[in-house]
């Protein structure tokens, strides 16, 4: 038996990969399947799941409502469609802002003296490793009516002799966007840096030699060669933003409800896991579709591991 195992490479491979594969199967794949099953079910009066088969949760999610004004039996209620759309646009806006902020910084680090590169990278890692929840809290302190931003703005107004009424920034969509951008910025900097750092200096020289100025070099050489990093960063930012509920919960209050908040409330407050499961599956399908088309267009970089 031992001899057979020693000679059978395929058996050895299976043995080594089995714990991980099994673990992922039980805790990631079975739960996804369960979520699908539950999403077809119904909520029992005490918040448990009654297993049955129906598409009612999905129909409700896409706007079918029986709670209508004017005594109609059914009507279109855009509540949930709006939430889905809001999540999608927020994730898109966040990703765009993050790329715009991350790119120059990553470029700067990649072109810095090799001795100083580590220090600059280190300065990116510190905020990244500071806890997610703590980082949202920091923005809460900044954006509040009595917070640091208003204090600084007040000083300036005072200096210029202007009247100043503190701005209402917390609990607005803008606050959620800023919070999201702050949370996920390092996830974009690192992969872009990795792909920029790989570009050999002679390529910049070749471009200059062939007549390209700084701007054209950026457009035609630097950007295309760093695309794998941008793609990896986008995946690392877009997907989590779609599903995050803490940022909107703390910085958006009741004003900005995203699909993450919807799901969380179904499981904890509203106690309708079946509807929550359906919303969660729709969220998953949405991210998969976006990722699929995005990576098919730009390729899937190995930079994702580097981050």
């Amino acid at each position: 038996m031992l001899q057979r195992f020693r000679e059978n490479k395929s058996m050895q491979g299976t043995f080594l990969a089995l714990p991980t594969t099994l673990w992922l199967f039980v805790l990631l794949i079975i739960p996804l399947f369960l979520t699908l099953v539950v999403s077809f079910g119904q909520r029992s009066p005490d918040g448990d799941v009654i297993f049955s088969f129906g598409l009612h949760n999905y129909i409700r999610l896409f706007g079918y409502s029986t709670d209508c004004p004017g005594g109609q039996t059914s009507c279109f209620d855009p509540l949930y469609v709006n939430i889905l759309w809001r999540s999608l646009t927020l994730a898109f806006n966040t990703t765009v802002c993050v790329i715009l902020l991350a790119y120059p910084l990553a470029y700067f680090i990649a072109r810095a003296h090799p001795k100083r590169r580590n220090i600059f990278l280190f300065m990116v890692l510190i905020p990244l490793w500071t806890n997610f929840v703590i980082r949202v809290y920091a923005w809460m302190m900044l954006l509040r009516k009595e917070g640091a931003i208003n204090i600084v703005l007040g000083w300036f107004a005072n200096l210029l002799g202007l009247d100043f009424t503190p701005l209402e920034m917390l609990y607005t969509p803008g606050a959620v966007l800023v919070g999201m951008v702050y949370e996920f910025l390092p996830f974009m900097i690192l992969p872009i840096y990795t792909s920029l750092e790989k570009i050999d200096n002679s390529l910049y020289e070749a471009a200059a030699d062939l007549g390209a100025n700084a701007f054209k070099t950026l457009l035609r050489v630097t950007l295309p060669l760093s695309m794998p990093g941008v793609v990896a960063g986008t995946i690392l930012v877009f997907i989590p933003v779609m599903g995050t509920f803490i940022v909107s919960d703390i910085l958006g209050g009741r004003q900005v409800i995203l699909v993450g908040n919807l799901i969380q409330r179904q499981f904890l407050d509203a106690r309708d896991p079946t509807f929550g499961s359906a919303a969660s599956l729709i969220l998953m399908v949405m991210t998969l579709i976006v990722t699929y088309f995005y990576t098919r267009k730009f390729g899937f970089g190995e930079e994702i591991v580097a981050a």
Partner: peptide, 23 residues
């Protein structure tokens, strides 16, 4: 085995979270 490794990268955490909770 290789494919299952990419699940946590391409699926939002909340989807995994409620799936595991249901399990």
């Amino acid at each position: 085995s290789q494919l299952s490794l990419y699940i946590p990268i391409v699926i939002p955490e909340i989807v995994m979270g409620i799936g595991i909770l249901t399990l």
